[in-house]
């Protein structure tokens, strides 16, 4: 039971897809200007990831090895189309804001990575748990960045004003920087830094190191 749970809890921080494996950065930058879009994107990606992992894991013995990537992409793309249509039907405004990024889940390295690295080799149960864990790990980072960017960029969370801006006779001057893509880079960078200072086993060994003067070669 504990082993099964690690499939779910591992990707939250220890194996987090964004901060450790640096996957899915593109969408993490693009859709986090507000918390609402970040939440919908997280839900869409987690749903696609779970559905595609389950499907791929189910038919993993029947997928010819040489064309496995094509089969995986076809399955993922069909799931993405389904999710995209559902969003268009029930949340048209948000789906307009997310524009191409829901469609681009097909090419999200995270989804392909989990399909290729895990679902192809494991039974359905662990595959779904692993997909859910990775989806939640991705969502955790997206929600964090979305909250920070919306709060400091507009003074509101989910559209509810927290800091009253100067334009409405408050004190808060919205940080234009937070609504620009570089701020997401800063925040992801700072998050990675904080996580690796706390869980130092995540730090990679540097490829190059300085030669110590006076040390014996």
């Amino acid at each position: 039971m504990t082993k099964k749970l690690t499939y779910l809890t591992g990707p939250l921080i220890d194996q987090n897809p964004i901060t450790l494996q640096i996957l899915g950065i593109c969408s993490a930058l693009a859709v986090t200007t507000s918390l609402a879009t970040a939440l919908v994107m997280s839900a869409a990606l987690t749903a696609v990831l779970c559905l595609s992992s389950a499907t791929i894991s189910l038919i993993r013995h029947h997928i010819p090895n040489v064309i496995r990537l094509i089969v995986q992409i076809v399955i993922i793309a069909s799931m993405v189309v389904v999710i995209d249509e559902i969003l268009k039907a029930y949340a048209f405004g948000i789906s307009r804001q997310l524009s191409v990024f829901v469609g681009l889940i097909v090419t999200n390295c995270l989804v392909m990575g989990r399909a290729e690295a895990f679902a192809m080799r494991n039974p359905v149960g662990p595959s779904v748990l692993d997909a859910l864990g990775n989806g939640l790990g991705y969502s955790l980072i997206l929600v964090l960045i979305g909250t920070i960017r919306e709060l400091f960029g507009t003074g509101a969370i989910l559209g509810v004003t927290v800091f009253v801006p100067v334009s409405e006779e408050g004190w808060f001057e919205p940080l234009g920087l937070m609504q620009l893509a570089p701020s997401a880079f800063f925040i992801i960078g700072a998050l990675i830094w904080a996580i690796r200072s706390r869980w130092s086993q995540q730090v990679e060994t540097p490829k190059l190191s300085l030669v110590k003067i006076g040390a014996k070669r």
């Binding site: 001057e173 940080l175 234009g176 920087l177 937070m178 620009l180």
Partner: peptide, 8 residues
């Protein structure tokens, strides 16, 4: 420069 970008 971060200040100038934040508050144009």
């Amino acid at each position: 420069s971060l200040l100038l970008i934040s508050f144009p």
